[in-house]
Structures are given as structure tokens and as C-alpha cells.
Simulated scan of single mutants.
Amino acid sequence: MEVDLQLCRFHGPEILELRIPDIIRRHGGPISLTQILAGISDAPSPDITCLERIMRVLVRKKIFSAQEASNSGDTLYGLTHSSRWLLTESGSEPSLAPLVVMENHPVRMAPWHYLSQCVREGGSAFVKAHGQDVWEFGLENPEFNKRFNEGMACTAKTVMSGVISGYKDGFDNIGSVVDVGGGTGQTISEIVKSYPHIKGINFDLPHVVAAAPKYEGVTNIGGDMFQEIPQADAVLMKWVLHDWSDEDCIKILNKCKKAIPEGRGKVIIVEIVLKPEGQGIFDYTGLVVDLNMLATCNGGRERTEPEWKKLLQEAGFPRYNIITVNALPSVIEAYPI
């Protein structure tokens, strides 16, 4: 999942609104600016110079490739590993296009303009921008809620592919898993698909699970994780705890402890483990995502291993393992004994 998230934030809308990756793919190979413009629907007065300047930056960042045609001298633009993640047409899975659309939604962009105000006086950038937190906003705005859920769901396949392949034995002796904050159920469905013996429970706010499709082996339950979590052999949380402050995370983890069997249950946390000085493929991206949490969630943050250790110990999970997988987040196994 090696896509420049900063670039997608600044250039994602035009890439996807114009469907440039899909246009190139349809042609079956690199094409000229003129051919790209011909493939753009609803373009009454196309500006080739404008397109050329956009593509120049995207080529520099390796979102597209560029080569000179031998016969005409025109520059031909092709897909790269990164732009293939932005395909949207049928048969183009997996795709991160819904995530890019969600991250560039005006609702998500507005809080970034309040970060300097947060430095001066504290508080939540999202609340300053919209007058309520992201969860309250999603409840009252179905269109944004739909975009948010689609963005989260599209990451499930790519992330869970890395998790399932790198955490093979972790699901072997588990009869049931409750995915807390599981959205529309894509994550738990990927687990059940790979481990059919597992009874999957997708648990999220009622208005979220109301939009969840039916997956074989998965039961949808609506509720509030701060009140009670359904019983299961293991609790899974993917990109949930990074939304909350340490104080709120401890409350959530305490509810997790009550949901699993005493003495043999575990909590499986799929989250970024920050390495601020790391040189790994995902380490810089983790820092960018941390800023995203700063802009979006009140108290949310990515955490380093020492910060995870402190949080888990304070929540009553003295023992943990970190398993690195081929994905942006890692798997953190947490045990209450």
C-alpha cells in the first residue's frame, strides 16, 4: 500500500474526478495528453496545458510514468504501482480510491485549517471546524457517513491481507471474534473467509451497522463500546484506539477485558506502532497519519511502542506481543494476565 498520502491529499480529487487511471487502463497502455482528454466525459472546453502541468507533478512523484513516443514525439503517460491503487472501474480491485475520496472530502479538509489555532489554545480541530466531533457529525450527515464507511472498508482488504498472512497462527484456536468498531463488516468478513471455523461479530454504532451488507458467518450488532462489548473468545480492534485519548482507550480496553473469557482471552489490536526515526517503507506514512488523527479526532493519536506499553499496562494488560506484518499497521496481542 505504498501510495504518497500527502500527494493524494493535494491531487487525489482531480485524479479521481477525471478518472485518469481508468482512462489509461482502458487503452491498455501509455497514452498522450490528447487521448486522456478524449476519455474525459463532460469536458466542453478541455485545457491541455492545465492537464500537462498536473501530470508533470504526478510523474515526478511516480504516480504516473512518462515516455516519449517514437513516432509522434508526444509524451505518453502510463500507470505505475501507485496509480493502480486509484483505479475505480469494475475489475480493478483492490483500490484505495474510496479512501482518497474520503480524505479529500471538504469535511475532512476543513479541520486542517484549524491546527494553528489548536497550537495556540488547544482543543479539537474537527470540533472547531464543524461544531461537533467526527462521530456526531457522521450520525447527522448520511452522505459523509457513507463516504467515511466506504473509505474505511476499502482499506480492510489490503490491510487484512497483510494481517492474515503475517498473523497466521493467531486466529487458529479462536472460536469467535468480535470486531469492535468494525464499520460495515469488511474486516471481520476477511477473517471469517480465511478461517471459516470462526464465528464473526461485527460491532459498531447502530447507524453504522444499519448500512452493513450481509456476510456469511458474520453477525452485525449495534451498540456503544463505552457501555458494553459482545462476548467472544477474542476482541479485534483495527484502527480504533488511535481515534481516542489514553483515558478513553483505557475505558474501551476495560470493556474488552470483560468481553473475553477470563484466563484465556486476548485482544488483537491492529494499529500503527510509530517509529519516528525509522527508515522502513511505512515509517514516514505513520507520522503523516498521526497528523491526520490530530486534525480529525479529539485526543486521537498514533503511538510508539513505549506509549503502547504504558497504555496497555494502565488498562490491565501487562503482557503484549507486537507482530510486524506487511502492512502499515502492526498486530499487537494484549493479554490481561
Score class of each variant (00 low, 15 high):
Leu253Gln: 04
Glu302Ile: 08
Ser116Leu: 14
Met152Arg: 07
Ile40Leu: 11
Arg301Cys: 14
Phe148Ala: 15
Leu5Ile: 14
Arg26Leu: 13
Arg108His: 00
Ala211Arg: 09
Pro111Glu: 00
Gln6Ser: 10
Tyr215Pro: 09
Val267Tyr: 01
Pro318Cys: 15
Tyr284Lys: 14
Met55Gln: 05
Ile164Arg: 02
Asn141Cys: 05
Ser65Trp: 02
Trp239Val: 11
Ser32Arg: 05
Trp135Lys: 12
Leu311Gln: 08
Glu2Cys: 07
Ser82Val: 09
Glu247Asp: 11
Gly265Phe: 05
Met102Arg: 12
Gly131Thr: 06
His113Arg: 13
Leu76Asp: 01
Lys146Leu: 12
Phe171Thr: 07
Asp290Lys: 10
Gln231Thr: 12
Asp169Tyr: 03
Gly183Cys: 10
Ala153Ser: 14
Leu241Lys: 03
His242Ala: 10
Arg53Trp: 06
Asp246Pro: 04
Glu228Met: 10
Pro44Asn: 07
Ile40Arg: 01
Ala212Phe: 01
Arg319Glu: 11
Gly28Pro: 07
Leu253Met: 13
Gly123Gln: 07
Ser161Asp: 11
Glu314Pro: 03
Gln279Phe: 09
Arg264Trp: 03
Asn149Arg: 12
Ile48Pro: 01
Ser32Asp: 04
Gly138Pro: 00
Val273Ser: 06
Pro336Phe: 05
Pro111Cys: 03
Ile337Tyr: 10
Thr75Gly: 06
His81Tyr: 05
Pro213Tyr: 02
Met1Gln: 02
Val289Gly: 00
Ser82Tyr: 00
Ile48Val: 13
Leu33Arg: 13
Leu328Asp: 01
Ile260Met: 14
Gly131Pro: 03
Asp290Met: 07
Leu312Thr: 06
